[in-house]
Design a protein around this nucleic acid. Structure first.
Lengths: 145, 145
DNA sequence: TCATATTCAGATTTTTCTATCCGAATTTAA
DNA sequence: TTAAATTCGGATAGAAAAATCTGAATATGA
C-alpha cells in the first residue's frame, strides 16, 4: 500500500529521477525505463503522457524517440511532480477525515498535523531532482533483475 | 482522497472519538453514530464490527443495543485504532515507492522521511482518545445537517 | 408471546485506481 | 518507399476499496 502518494505518483517520481541522470536533451524510451525500474510498460506510458501534457516532459515519436525533461533537472522539485499527478489534496484535507475541520473548528491533531504537513511540503520543495538522483548511488539499478 | 489513512480508518477514528464522549458502559447504536457523523450506515456497521472483533469495542444486540469501548478512553490511543484498521504499512514502506529502499540503499528522502514518520508515530501514540474528544469543542456536531 | 430494534454474516454492487490492449500517427533509417 | 520503432488516444479489463443489500440471530419490552 502506498503511503503518502498514489502509485501513479510514485512511478512518476521514479521515472523522472531516472531521466534526470540522462545527458540534457537525450531521449529515453518507455522500454528502457520499464526495464530498469520495475513499472508496468503501458501504465508508465500513460503516466509519462500525463507529465508531458502538464509540460514537465517533452516527447518524440519514432525510433530514437522517447521522453526527456523540458527544464533542467536542477529546476524541478519533487513537489512539481506530486502536484502534477496527485494534486495538492494533502495540503488541504483533515488528516482524520473530518469534513469541517479548520482553524476555527480544529480536530484534535489539527495543529500538530499542520506542522508536520509543512515539514513534508518543505521536504518536497527543498531538493531538486538533479541532486536527488545523484545522491542515490544507482537509482537505475535499484530493482533486481 | 484520503491522506495518511484509508477512509475506513478515518471513519473508525471518528466513531471511536464519538464513543469516548459517552458515559462509561453506555451503548450507542450505529443509527445514532451515522446521524451525527456523516458516515454511510452499513459501512460504519462493518467497521465497528471489525473493531469489536479486534477487541477495541464491545457490542450488544437488540433494542438498547449498540457499541461501547472495552477499555477506558484514557487508555486508548489513535495508534490503537490505526493499527487495527490499516495495519502498520506506513511505518515500513519507502515513501517514494522504491522497492529496495533501505538504510544501506536509501532513496533521496529516506532519512528525512524517517524523521517525519517517527514524528507521526509519536503523534499517534502520545494522546489518548479521551483528551482528544474533549479537546474538540463539539465532535458530534461537526457535520452540518 | 410477539412486534420491534438492534447487531451479525455473507454476498453483491458501485466506484476508484491500476493495468492492459489495440490500432493509428509519427519518425527514422535503410 | 518501406519496414521498424516509437508515442498517442481511447477503450477495456482487473483489482482493490467503498458502499449497499438481505436475511438471520438476538435482545427488549409491552
Amino acid at each position: 500500500m502506498s503511503i503518502l502518494f498514489s502509485r501513479q505518483c510514485e512511478y512518476a517520481i521514479q521515472g523522472v529521477l531516472y531521466l534526470a541522470l540522462k545527458p540534457e536533451g537525450e531521449m529515453t524510451s518507455i522500454k528502457e525505463l520499464t526495464k530498469r525500474l520495475d513499472i508496468p510498460y503501458h501504465f508508465l506510458g500513460k503516466i509519462l503522457q500525463r507529465l508531458a501534457a502538464k509540460g514537465l516532459l517533452m516527447s518524440l515519436k519514432g525510433p530514437t524517440g522517447g521522453f526527456a525533461l523540458t527544464k533542467r533537472a536542477k529546476d524541478i522539485t519533487l513537489f512539481d511532480i506530486v502536484e502534477a499527478v496527485d494534486g495538492s489534496a494533502f495540503t488541504k484535507n483533515c488528516v482524520l477525515g473530518f469534513p469541517e475541520c479548520s482553524g476555527k473548528n480544529p480536530c484534535a491533531v489539527h495543529n500538530t498535523w499542520g506542522r508536520m504537513r509543512d515539514e513534508i511540503y518543505e521536504m518536497l520543495v527543498s531538493k531538486n531532482i538533479s541532486d536527488m538522483a545523484k545522491e542515490m548511488k544507482k537509482p537505475e539499478y535499484r530493482v533486481a533483475g
